[in-house]
Write a protein that binds this DNA or RNA. Structure first.
Lengths: 107, 107
DNA sequence: AAACTATATCGCCATATAGTTATATGCCTT
DNA sequence: AAGGCATATAACTATATGGCGATATAGTTT
């Protein structure tokens, strides 16, 4: 991490993390890992209202994690930068380490 | 990111991201990048109440990002897994890309 | 243009969370 | 054991956010 970031930059970074800090949003990202999807497809895949999906997609798009492509009636959403999945992998790895250590502590 | 994670695991991952999705918490992590610090030191460095710092440290510790070491009256906090800074770097990189693209879009 | 479809937005409620002040806890010193 | 220091917790307020149903908007079809 860079030495000193401006408060505004820190806020942007925090926003990104916050955007990824929601289970449903993580699931949406995972759905999109295989390729772009329309809102309807995502609604069908995750059982919640269309309004809710739409709002979460809006959040992810606003922070630059997703990109939108409109085609006729449909809107296709896609991952803007696949590197986010590396982040997920890192969290999973770190999480595993933590859980293992915790498990050992309980032994 | 692994193909299918259980809801519980997804929630854990989300928790981690959420923990990093707060400017003050990011600043605390940055402070600790150089090495362990006591609560008092962190309070002096970031201008907010001791109670607030303590609460944020508690959040970061709960999700396994920090570790605690008690020594006499003091409690030293330290980064539990330095790999989180790679994540910050990745976010910064991705962010930069996004902002550049956005800037170009406005040109 | 009227009806239809896909998506976005609005208004609402319930809950979560950052911050504050005040207080409690735990450890040390004398 | 009494007082003082460092940290944690409690009680509270203000704000943000997730979810819902209803509605608006934009594009398509007939």
């Amino acid at each position: 991490m860079a030495k000193s970031l401006t408060p505004a930059t820190i806020e942007l970074v925090a926003q990104r993390f916050r955007a990824m800090g929601e289970p449903l949003r993580l699931r949406l990202l995972m759905s999109l890992q295989a390729g772009e999807r329309t809102v309807t497809e995502l609604v069908e895949e995750h059982q919640t209202s269309q309004a809710n999906i739409s709002k979460h997609l809006q959040v992810l798009t606003a922070v630059g994690l997703l990109k939108r492509r409109k085609q006729g009636l449909n809107v296709f959403y896609a991952i803007a930068d696949p590197s986010i999945f590396n982040m997920c992998d890192m969290v999973c790895g770190s999480l595993k380490k933590h859980l293992d250590a915790q498990a050992k502590g309980l032994a």
